[in-house]
């Protein structure tokens, strides 16, 4: 079994494992808007495989991380729509 821990998505705790991506944790938290587009539209993930860049969020303070390509880790702090 993969190790279980929790990550925070916009301050709320979400159960996660190291097999999960940050994107999965965000969607599990009920958040659907990941970012604002250049004209202010709400956007969510599209491709799930690292090519569309729609799933960019802030992870541990680093901006523009593709959440579909990053695995959850203990104490990870994820912020969307920044």
């Amino acid at each position: 079994m993969p190790k279980a821990f929790s990550v925070t998505v916009n301050g709320a705790q979400v159960d996660a494992t190291e097999d999960m991506t940050a994107l999965a944790a965000i969607l599990l938290s009920g958040t659907t808007t990941l970012r604002r587009s250049v004209s202010g539209e709400q956007r969510g993930a599209l491709c799930g495989m690292g090519v569309c860049f729609e799933c960019r969020v802030t992870i541990n303070g680093e901006h523009h991380c593709r959440s579909c390509q990053i695995r959850c880790a203990q104490e990870m702090d994820i912020r969307t729509d920044e």
């Binding site: 097999d19 999960m20 991506t21 994107l23 659907t32 599209l46 799930g48 579909c68």
Partner: peptide
């Protein structure tokens, strides 16, 4: 098509494969 929760078919599958319920 730019609304959240409109995704690729393989895109949604990939997210489910990586832990979304």
């Amino acid at each position: 098509w730019t609304l959240p929760n409109v995704m690729g078919a393989g895109g949604l599958q990939a997210v489910v494969k990586s832990g979304m319920d």
